[in-house]
Computed example of a mutant assay.
Amino acid sequence: MPLHVSQAPAPAQHSVLAALGSPALRAAGTPALRSFPGPLSAELPLPVHVLGVTAPTAAPAGAPATRLAGWRFLIRGGEVTLAAADTLRTAGGWTFSHFFEGPYLASTERALRQADASGSPWQPRLLSIPDLYMLTLWLHGDPAADPAEGAPDPADVLIPLAPAPPGIAAHRPHRVADLLPRLTVRLVPPPLLGSTA
């Protein structure tokens, strides 16, 4: 398998497993989890990085900056993905955040299959662009890299997940060097009228 799925921090995984066995599961807003009669598992942990734009004083204007925001686990019942679980880093370490359902689940699985079929050795990550309401599967070219570190390399690949923002085709792989400049332009606010910028 060309994909090299990273090992999530043990406290992040433990927090999800604890949530799966807690009464909070039955209170979650995820009908598929509440109604599934069998055992559930947390699989395919993916680090979730958030893309923003650095301040002009910190880096060249419009330069991308990423930070690790959490880990996402696909929650499976047998062979079926029912939901996902997110964890967050807090002052006390990794903690369970919430369960959720929705279109990103099937889209994530489809993008992972696309990446696997490519035959290239990728480290899969998720790259969230909150200002554009966009999530991508980020295929990092160094499978041995620390999944918590680094910014998208120009040769890395991004696969936008559905639903994608207007003008961006979901499930069409793009090199970072091709897609990121288009996204960064959307993230940088236009100069104010009358300014010298």
Rank of each mutant, 00 (worst) to 15 (best):
H140D: 03
A170L: 05
A115V: 03
A84S: 12
G21D: 00
H171L: 05
F73S: 01
A42Y: 01
R110E: 07
R89L: 13
I129M: 02
A24Y: 01
W138D: 02
P124Q: 09
A145F: 00
R34S: 07
P31N: 08
P121C: 12
D178R: 13
A19T: 02
W71H: 04
G141W: 12
T184F: 10
G194W: 08
A197L: 15
R186V: 11
A144W: 06
A10S: 09
P181K: 14
P160R: 04
Y104H: 09
A85R: 01
S97I: 02
S195F: 11
T196D: 15
P189Q: 04
G52K: 06
P124W: 08
D142W: 10
A59W: 01
A63E: 10
A84F: 07
H49A: 03
R26H: 11
L193I: 11
R172W: 12
L135E: 04
V5W: 09
G150R: 02
L3C: 12
T184E: 10
L127G: 03
S97P: 02
P181M: 14
D116Q: 15
F36P: 01
T90L: 09
P47R: 00
A58S: 09
A10L: 12
G167F: 01
W94C: 04
A27P: 05
L132R: 03
T30I: 06
S128N: 12
E43H: 05
L20R: 00
E79L: 05
D86N: 14
A8Y: 00
Q114K: 09
V50M: 09
G52L: 07
M1V: 10
G194D: 02
P173N: 06
L112E: 02
S22F: 00
M134V: 09
T196C: 15
A117T: 11
G93K: 06
W71M: 04
L88I: 11
V50Q: 04
A12L: 08
P160F: 08
V185N: 10
